[in-house]
Design a protein around this nucleic acid. Structure first.
Lengths: 230, 230
DNA sequence: GATCTCATGTTTGTGAATTAACAATTTAAC
DNA sequence: GTTAAATTGTTAATTCACAAACATGAGATC
């Protein structure tokens, strides 16, 4: 067993590659080239080859990559051969939508428990997932050995609930609130900030000269400073 | 009116700054330092000062930044003084949740039209937003002068619907499907890949040595290559 | 009014990520 | 069996992002 350093940027692309490899496998394709992959996942072909090369030689020069070999490798690397259970905290509109989201299909992830403070819905089962009251959080996470949670509570409750999660031994939080959470160093937070994404998109559209450069490649945008700014 | 080059990374942080400035304003705080901002938005204080400096001097040495001045500046820069209308295509679970999501509160964004292929819901109003059939997409976008859309259709329909949107003159797409869309250079796509985010989080947790480095700062992760890999 | 403290703005260095380009090597074709 | 076509793996160069550190200047204190 050897350890290899994988750049952060590469790690983020792995699930993307994995998903398309699954598609190719289902379509019974035997081989694939970096150029073809590039077309599908919209990542430069040189970047793909560079990414794969971190794992050692996986392809054949002049031929391409064997879909099955590659798929099996990624399956192991991404731990797709075993199911990962996660919890969801906050069953509002967004939380409910995520309960119905099919994480299991391509990625082997399942939401196996949900928590909410609303006594109206606790004790019920929504989309096949039991909703527990917040008071049972620590015990349930412990019993079910869950250390990854999706956070979809209202902003004002975010930090408070986070502290609860940290104390319950959670190691990773997928944060859908618009607050940046304070957590100890051994807990990882991945932010999914919906309003931010949309706002950023709008900003790029407003300040980017559509004629000159392709949007996906723009490294900087132009901004008009209004002259009357005191 | 002068043009300034803003790095992509900086532009992505602007909505974050703006949101916290709003919070400070509501709390009737008069001044704020880069260190205090840093604490709240979890961005290095030097990075914040660097970001602000792209816009010219906005603060006072030895004092900090005036909250009102800064807020007004960002309001103009991010076009928060006028309302931006966007459309949503695909009113499934996720789409429905986004209709209820309050983009308007902090960011001046409103979903003013939604589209779906299901005749059961077209013609109705959901969460205050009218649902139109797909056939009316071109006309409605034109009438309402909307050129930004949120895409929440099932994966198999994604590219087809995208082509429709592009033909309707859409300039920006917030893509919630797990496909990477093919669009012409003058259309910008912002991907929000939920399964990917969760998978990446899990990968980092599995391959990252919790004791040694804080998660948020990790640039690379360690990976165990299984020895039996042929 | 002089001194001291504090926080900005900017310079500078470092490390990461991307991409172009090419040599190496395998398959396919004739 | 030889040649041509194709595609990987890697080197190198460029661009980008981040963060440390310091000098400058504003305001507070006595």
């Amino acid at each position: 067993m050897s350890e290899i350093k994988i750049p952060k940027a590469t790690a983020k692309r792995l699930p993307l590659y994995y998903r398309y490899l699954n598609f190719l496998h289902d379509a019974e394709k035997k081989k694939v080239s970096s150029t073809e992959l590039s077309e599908a996942v919209k990542v430069d072909s040189a970047t793909i080859r560079r990414d794969f090369s971190y794992f050692g030689a996986l392809g054949k020069r002049g031929y391409g990559y064997d879909v099955n070999d590659l798929l099996n490798f990624f399956k192991k690397t991404l731990n797709q051969d075993r199911l990962t259970n996660v919890a969801l905290v906050g069953v509002g509109n967004l939380g409910h939508a995520l309960l119905n989201y099919n994480f299991r299909q391509t990625n082997s992830i399942r939401i196996s428990a949900a928590f909410d403070s609303d006594a109206e819905i606790t004790g019920t089962i929504q989309s096949g997932v039991p909703i527990y009251p917040m008071a049972e959080l620590v015990q349930q996470l412990k019993d079910q050995q869950i250390d990854i949670t999706i956070l979809t509570v209202p902003n004002p409750a975010a930090q408070e609930v986070t502290n609860l999660l940290v104390n319950a031994g959670v190691r990773g939080i997928l944060n859908f609130t618009s607050l940046r959470l304070s957590v100890p160093d051994n807990v990882r937070v991945q932010n999914v900030d919906l309003a931010n994404e949309l706002q950023t998109l709008i900003y790029f559209l407003d300040h980017y000269d559509a004629q000159l450069k392709p949007a996906e490649d723009a490294d900087s945008v132009t901004l008009d400073i209004k002259a009357d700014n005191k």
